[in-house]
Simulated assay, not measured.
Amino acid sequence: MSGPGESFTAEPFPGESFTGESFTGPSRPGPARHVPAPPQEPPPLRPFVSLASPDTYDVDTARVRPTGPRRRTGVVAAAACAVLGLGLIGGAVTGSWLTGDGSDGSDTPDAFTAAGDLWHSVPVDKLFPPTVMGNGAGPGGSDRTWTRIAVAPDSGCGDAFDPLLQKALAPAGCLRLLRATYTDATRSHVTTIGLLFTKADAAAMGVLSRRFEEQGLDSRRDLMPRPYAAEGTVAAGFGDDQRASWTLSVLTDAPVVTYAVSGFADGRAVGEPQPAEDAMKADATTAVAQAGLGHDAQGLADRVERSLRKTVDSATEKPS
């Protein structure tokens, strides 16, 4: 101990320390105390993943390549192409229905088109048979037989018709003209049959047919077809003055005008030719009518026209 006025310096006990005015307890082991762990860095947040396809990268360029939007764009483009394709196909099918162009998977043409091609695709013997039988085609239902004696080279329409008839037919155009001349079994009558293949479509042929019918153009004496007078045959003298009867028909189911003109084989002139329709009447008394020249013209024209339609039907038949 020290007395008054003395100073005292404390000596620390073993295991204790003293610094300045503070005192720490002994450094000997004491009861266990909880020491909080030092704060740690928070774990990195997990990336947010949406339902859309993730972005990918081009390895070579390391640029973002958004597959999601591109894929959606591709789908939209494909759908648009599909719709456009269906539209084009539908339009083509509709067009084929409207025009009858034979686009049903076969190469079979429609009847109108097929008829227009016959002038160069069918043998002459099929269009103008060497012999044409006219059962019941004569006056009073008598039978007729016509034999072909000449076939004209296919040509244009120059000089084949009277000028006014040429003008009346002009709107349809002249693609090709085929003609043949026949004689009857007695070789006293001659008849030229003609097939004028036009350039007109079905609508134009319909207009032309109505005009001829409404204006009676097929029965006017100044609108007559001309004969084909073949040298070296009984028809050698068959000219314009020898025309006795005629018939003409504008077809609407084919681009064709059919006609026939008949006369006497001896070359006699006929002052007043008669349309076949008039010459075939039961009460007709003219020399043309009584000779049956109207029947020759109409009967031969009917059978050649019928043969033409049969040929068209064969050309347009679809295989079974």
Rank of each mutant, 00 (worst) to 15 (best):
G3E: 08
F8E: 12
E16W: 09
S17W: 04
S17Q: 02
P39N: 07
L45F: 07
L45A: 13
S50K: 04
S53G: 07
D58R: 11
A62C: 02
R65A: 12
R70G: 15
R71L: 13
A79V: 15
L84P: 01
L84T: 11
L86G: 09
G87S: 14
G95C: 00
G105C: 14
S106H: 04
S106M: 05
S106T: 13
D110P: 14
F112S: 07
F112K: 05
A115C: 08
G116L: 08
P123C: 15
V124W: 08
P129S: 02
P129A: 06
T131F: 07
T131N: 10
V132C: 06
A137V: 04
G138T: 03
P139W: 01
G141D: 06
G141C: 06
G141I: 07
S142C: 06
S142G: 15
R144D: 07
T147S: 04
I149D: 02
A150Q: 02
V151I: 15
A152H: 00
A152F: 02
A152D: 06
P153M: 04
D154Q: 14
D159T: 09
D159W: 04
K167D: 15
A168W: 05
A172R: 01
C174E: 09
R179F: 07
T181V: 05
T183D: 03
D184Q: 05
V190I: 02
I193N: 01
I193K: 05
L195P: 04
F197S: 10
F197W: 13
K199H: 02
A202V: 13
A204T: 15
S209N: 13
E214V: 12
D218Y: 00
D218W: 00
D218I: 00
S219V: 00
D222E: 14
M224S: 02
M224R: 06
P225H: 11
A229H: 06
E231S: 15
G232V: 05
T233Q: 02
T233E: 02
G237W: 10
F238L: 10
G239F: 10
D240K: 05
Q242G: 11
Q242D: 09
A244T: 04
T247L: 04
S249Y: 03
L251H: 13
L251F: 11
L251A: 14
T252Y: 03
T252K: 03
A254G: 03
P255I: 02
V261K: 00
V261Q: 01
F264Y: 05
V270L: 05
E272Y: 02
P273W: 08
A276P: 03
M280W: 00
M280V: 03
A289I: 03
Q290V: 15
G292S: 10
G292Q: 08
L293K: 00
Q298K: 10
V304R: 01
R306N: 09
S307P: 09
L308H: 14
K310S: 14
K310C: 08
D313V: 10
D313I: 07
D313K: 09
S314C: 09
P319K: 00
P319W: 00
